[in-house]
Design a protein around this nucleic acid. Sequence first.
DNA 1: TCGTCTCCCACTTTTGAACAGA
DNA 2: ATCTGTTCAAAAGTGGGAGACG
Length: 542
Amino acid sequence: MYEEELLYLRSRGMAPPAPLGLHPYLGGGLPANLTDHIEKYRLGFHGGLTHHSPFAHGFPGDYLKPPVQCAGFPGPGLPGGKTDPRIKVRLENETLWSQFNKFGTEMIITKLGRRMFPTVKMSVSGLEPNTKYFVLMDITPADDSRYKFQGKEWVVAGKAEPHMPGRLYIHPDSPASGAQWMRHPISFQKLKLTNNNLDQQGHIILNSMHKYQPRIHIVAAPDLVTLHWSTFNTFNFPQTCFTAVTAYQNERITQLKIDNNPFAKGFRENGQLRSKKRSGGTSPPAGDMNTSAPKATEGATNDATLEKRSRLNSVDSGDLDASDDERPSSSMSVEKDLGDEKVDVESPPTPPPPFLPPPPIIKSEVEDTSPSLVSPLVSAASMMAAAAAGVAAVPDHTSRKALTPPTLASIEPRLPLHDASSILSPAATRPCLPSPTYSTGLPGSLQPHPGMPGSSLPYPYLYYSHMMSPYLLGRTAPHLPPAPPTSALDKAARDMYAGYPTYLRTPPGPHHHSSLPATPSRPAPIHPYSYTLPPQVQAANL
DNA sequence: TCGTCTCCCACTTTTGAACAGA
DNA sequence: ATCTGTTCAAAAGTGGGAGACG
């Protein structure tokens, strides 16, 4: 779809030609207002694959590292991948996390996606003030076991189920300068967890009754393309390890959530829900909160409990207050001092995974980068490749080599065959797992303009195309020059989009923008999945 | 039978549109 | 006409519980 989009932009005099094989966006061909848009949206990535995959270049191997240090799960910490010793990260709500971790944190996962609580909230230091960074988060399996809650503890219940391809969540403020990131704590409150393997909202897919470890990646990169080949500074906080569940197992965790999450205020002892229950004769849960956690069962009249609860709530509020993620102007606004214990976390060194080397054309654009330091996104691309190859039902007979820019040929052996059935093109069924390559979808007689990439391109191109096309093509920017007379190719490109459902072309609802604002105050998430599911369509209908 | 999952409920918080006033 | 502050309804987010499912 990248080509279609480019054709469209080109037809409006917005996309200057680029040398063959060079991504036009890399070449600075995209208008600033559009790159600005790109950079303001978060997106979900597909990545990850089983360690059995021949495309596993190391990143997925992290999934099988020794277990992290979680409550009830002794073991060494999951190594991080810190590569810049100057960068320091600390968990802002470390106290709250520790309280949960003490009992074995549980996170509810639902079909439609559920936020994490507590949320990962951290502060960063040691960044270059004027360098742009991406901040990302992913969640990796902590071990290869499935668990069950027996008695009052989690015990291994067998081997883990195959993990879905991992997704990377880009903090919505990305990219931002180091000074901006360091100015205020960074919260991942909007991140959602799901157990829906077919999720198209970009939520992170997890398996119930499995243990996971969130990881933070800080990447110096000015844009998404560069991001793919940049060094990932990876951090993890062992106390943020959690078990994914569809219903809470440990009532102590439940009580902690109720006492700390404002949305669950109704379930507190003095809340109306509990009051109703009590009046109805239902006894409160008998959680033996014999620790620093609030003793909910002692009733709301206990001053000490109230004080403690208040203190905890203040932590929680801060947790949520940092959530202005969807308000770009304030997402890094001044944060109140929570008085929370802050612990500097030095991410333990991780043997940098041998990621898929970047294409030479890209690599030549950046400073010499050791393959071992290349982004997990690259690995994610290879994971997608493996995933797509695994589900590919239609063999590809296209000579990809002939269509692929020569400069990208070096990665060819590691990529699966181009699969026309899994591409995200107007003519193709929208897949759950995007293909690592994509097609123009143009008729064979209509080949791309000279200077455009070939009709089959590696993942990063796909990535951009997914992000931009539906959003940009669905809007008529008033400041754009009128479309010049169109060539057959341009017309074909637009006609192709005419086949899209309306929701893919124009944002639904009364609030959709008729113009393309330079800085939307509340942008809809644009990523390979969000746009494939219109907001008005319930996931249950899928 | 049991463990797990899904859906719905009642509640709280958040968000943004609508409105009034300066 | 523009900006600011307030109000209010809708949307989103919570855990509980009943029932379904394998």
